[in-house]
Design a protein around this nucleic acid. Sequence first.
RNA 1: UGACACCCGCUCGU
DNA 2: ACGAGCGGGTGTCA
Lengths: 264, 264
Amino acid sequence: MSFVPGLTAGQPSGTATTDPIVRWVHEFIPLLSALPRDDSLRGNKLRRGVGLVFPTKFALANTSISPSRLFSGRWVPCTNVVRYTLPTDTTTVLIHTDGACLGNGQANPRAGWAFWHASSSTGDPLTADGRLERKGPFGDDSLQTNNRAELRAVIAALRYRNWPGEGIRTLVIATDSAYVVEGATTWARGWIQNGWMTQAGPVLNRDLWETLLGEVERFFVRGMTIKFWRIPRAWNAVADAAAKAAAQRDDDALEEWADKFGFM
Amino acid sequence: MSFVPGLTAGQPSGTATTDPIVRWVHEFIPLLSALPRDDSLRGNKLRRGVGLVFPTKFALANTSISPSRLFSGRWVPCTNVVRYTLPTDTTTVLIHTDGACLGNGQANPRAGWAFWHASSSTGDPLTADGRLERKGPFGDDSLQTNNRAELRAVIAALRYRNWPGEGIRTLVIATDSAYVVEGATTWARGWIQNGWMTQAGPVLNRDLWETLLGEVERFFVRGMTIKFWRIPRAWNAVADAAAKAAAQRDDDALEEWADKFGFM
RNA sequence: UGACACCCGCUCGU
DNA sequence: ACGAGCGGGTGTCA
């Protein structure tokens, strides 16, 4: 998690220090005062992110070490599932996301999303999935595209459960989409500063980007952090298969945005 | 047979005419002046095509009419074989080609090619076949793949005999490989214009594509035209069986490219 | 220009 | 059921 540059820019450069406590105060106090006064950060209502805080890249992401080697299954009693956590820090949980769009860019595209968040006690992967809705989270008509599906998968994962309520302090989102990872961790800063413009015009899928940032902020004030990990496609087979299957399902795409909450 | 766009672009659009003679002059004169000055088009030496002329798709290729219904066997005295020609035009001859590659993409692939060009007077199909060489026509090391085998089959068929010498004016190559048909009739134009690049990098099997185009040009100046027909796999059983058998033969693949010329 | 996805099609195979 | 060999395209950004 890193902070929006504008909020910390006021700190005189002469006061630079390596004391982590001092750094924390300098970074955190202005951030708290910038929190929205309304209650949009409470509850689980959809909200647009304001650039308060941005996700970062998963630091342990290495050249060739796969998620399955870095994270290990750990049985979670209250939910009765096996989540994948760091052996050194069981409050850091891994989720794989993926989007699919059959006929992407063609006449009748069908987009679907999925994420893999746990395994059953018998070892079967537990996934959630769905068709991409015809409307965005704020009611905008939208197209069925691969990139919207990738973004939708992440938002679905973030909104699936009250993750901090499970004691999770860091959620690692593993995806093969550089669009998602770079957008959330790098490009979003610039977009917020320049009014959501790109070289070629307005940023596309802005509604989903803002929703994603909104979720990150909602979790931030509850002490949970979001990290992104760009993984090779070959490491994302479970979520990939689920997303393809969801896109293929014969039921038509829902008209309106519809959150899917996990049991409990 | 169609002409390279750049060579006819000089014709003022105002002179458009439907007179076939005039059209022929406009198209053919610049083409002739673009012919290579050297003698690379004479004899039967291997040469790289330069984009002078491209094969086209067989126009009579229809939804569901099979080669065996469209072409009929016709005894050719001087060679003592039965060739398959159009009843309405016995100078148009049909050849089936196919490539095979056992263990394609695996550790030790074995590629072979075959074509079916005639039948004996007793009705047995006459085919030619071989293993794919380890080196390309210009000496490049190359892999044993299905697509190289498909291309090799076409080149082998074209170089098998002095076809125009038999009075043939159109050679129809029937293959189940869309890679071969689209590549030769559609994609090759673009490749020549942009330096043999594709979205993902250099065009693969360029040596074989250039050789194929070279043969087309060699025949063009002798008044013979090459047409391609994409047929379903089920219609290519004879060539398929021969190609598989050639790939399976225990003799190792030849190191160097080796043309096979038919008897006579 | 580059990158990562998402596909569509045909073949070749295990 | 799985994979590779090949091409065409769009979705998106820097």
